[in-house]
Design a protein around this nucleic acid. Structure first.
Lengths: 338, 338
DNA sequence: AAACACGCTGGAAACGATACCGGAAACGCG
DNA sequence: CGCGTTTCCGGTATCGTTTCCAGCGTGTTT
């Protein structure tokens, strides 16, 4: 055990100021019913002692903390940083503080239980409400103050922020088609992710719209990693009749496609066009720079904060599903079909 | 007031399992002295009820939470995100959870008091220890479990992580000198930052080493923003005898220099060489790509976590100041002097 | 057979803060 | 002067958890 930190409490303040704890508390919270001189005296002591109320104790007693929680699965993938930037921007001058929680425990892998546990953790008084990013099982207590961003699984009963994944995928296919491509490969996203499914559906809808018949052989399974992009590329390009373009369900996967293409000696975009989805910062640093569908991840974070605050202040709209538009970002990884 | 969230407590668990709260608590914490069948029964109930202990109550009672705190001033500037990535990487599988705290209140601007307040907030039981990024007044309780990263002001009495700012600046000047530059402008960093001072000193030391006389007219004040880089460039380049290279105290400022150069119709690097400091991701996307001194911000974050955990587990070394090496990253913004 | 140890359990006191209630002055008014 | 109000303050219960201590059956020892 470590040495106990002689943390100073409201009792110390009260004693030093010669008042009761109740009075000290009243001063702390700027409540009425305290004489000016008492107020000044206690304030002085608070300053002198460098006293700050324990968030733990405070939030245990009174159920409101002015703190918002953000639950992210990890802190390495840039995607989450983009969300955090959006949240950070929205929190500025909102009057709320922000608590981002992530777990370093190996148990984190059991995503579903991890989420359940930590949502409870945050909403058990520490925060007034909380935003969950990419929850795998978006089923929560009805009355909890929760907003989810990009949930796995549709039809959550809490306010959700999602990108127009379906339309975005159509935009991607449209673009490739406009460049003359007819055989377009697709690398799927994580099978449990609703966004992945929507993108796949959009891919099919885009083909249909262009009068191109869907071909199962051009579709590979995936899980949003770059590894699956690589594997898919090897698989697709070694077919007898390989595609002239590959649409990856997200940028991370598209980066894997780019790597594989290079290893296979294929020039992008001359020999193979590649398009991604998300518009993460790295896409500007790949060679060639990746053409992609932007889903304004930041905007999703900001919107999440606004929705949560609205809900907390009872200004909530009846609408549960909130969408952020996607749009095509043309860079250098797509070219006319030869 | 909002509707009370019917949050379920350990009492509910105890009642449902037909045991006392003490026993329920023992099961929760995997303490000894509880019969296997009781254990199983209680575990079952915990699962069924989706119960999670309130962090607030827990940390109030027992002084150890297995949570580390990270205090950042804001969440927009990429610099902090790099730190967070490093921290995030180090926290993985460390067995600790992470709580990042930032404030959205306008009072945040009163940095010193904000820090004092929030350090107390976090260390008042919520976390086992905490890491503070860029604290302006690194004077804390002696026995608090605190680690600081890139503190303003030298000689903190808590473990600190800093880059070799002095050496890094020398490296920058060395490089410019090796390209034939003799008149090298300098845009200073924020005056209260120790790192800024060190870089300035390094700049002077580098000149001295090369036998170049220091010239006050070539130095501009700054504050780490891009705006000051712009202003400084206008000022420097409109002098009768302008410098052939500008060394900015950080990348953000260097980006301002780049912008101003473009506005002035100066070609970088042909007409003007520019070098920054930090190596933030944006430096790869500027035109031309910015040559800079890398200070491995991520590594600083990771090291911070390791130091904190060491301290918590009493494996602390006597050394207080920990440095991370800087090194030159050559890209496209510097060229031989004409 | 008495005494003792031991495994398991429940009761109650804390942790630090706030909310509620009630009491003591001070003051105004008939 | 008595009485009701107002102003200010202190006491106490309470939030959900852990920890300490005591109790109670059994099994083991002398």
């Amino acid at each position: 055990m470590r040495s106990k930190q002689s943390t100073i409490t409201i009792h110390d303040v009260a004693k030093a100021a010669g008042v009761s704890v109740s009075t000290a508390s009243r001063v702390l919270n700027n409540k009425a019913d305290v004489s000016p001189e008492t107020y000044k005296k206690v304030r002085q002591v608070i300053d002198d002692l460098n006293y700050t109320a324990s968030l733990a104790a405070k939030s245990m007693r009174s159920r409101t903390t002015n703190v918002l929680g953000l639950l992210v699965p990890e802190l390495i993938e840039v995607y989450y940083h983009e969300v955090i930037k959006g949240v950070g921007a929205a929190i500025e001058n909102s009057g709320y503080d922000l608590l981002i929680y992530t777990s370093g425990s190996p148990t984190r892998n059991k995503r579903a239980s991890w989420e359940r546990e930590h949502v409870a953790l945050l909403s058990s008084g520490l925060t007034d409400g909380c935003i969950i990013v990419s929850p795998s099982a978006p089923t929560f207590q009805q009355n909890a103050n929760i907003v989810v961003i990009d949930p796995h699984g549709a039809g959550a009963e809490v306010p959700s922020v999602v990108a127009t994944n379906h339309e975005g995928a159509i935009q991607a296919v449209d673009y490739l088609v406009s460049l003359g491509h007819r055989r377009i490969g697709f690398v799927q996203g994580h099978p449990t992710a609703w966004s992945a499914l929507q993108r796949f559906e959009g891919y099919k809808a885009g083909l249909h719209k262009a009068g191109i018949e869907f071909e199962a052989a051009l579709v590979c399974e995936g899980d949003f990693t770059s590894a699956c992009g690589k594997a898919a590329t090897y698989h697709l390009m070694n077919q007898p009749n390989p595609p002239s373009a590959i649409f990856a369900a997200n940028d991370r996967t598209a980066i894997g496609v780019l790597e594989a293409a290079q290893e296979l000696g294929l020039n992008v975009p001359q020999d193979l066009s590649v398009i991604g989805f998300d518009n993460i910062p790295e896409t500007m640093q790949t060679t060639p720079r990746l053409t992609t569908i932007d889903q304004s991840i930041r905007e999703m974070g900001s919107l999440g904060v606004r929705l949560l605050i609205d809900r907390l202040q009872n200004r909530e709209s009846a609408q549960l599903l909130h969408t952020v538009p996607t749009h095509l970002v043309v860079r250098d990884s797509c070219w006319m079909r030869k």
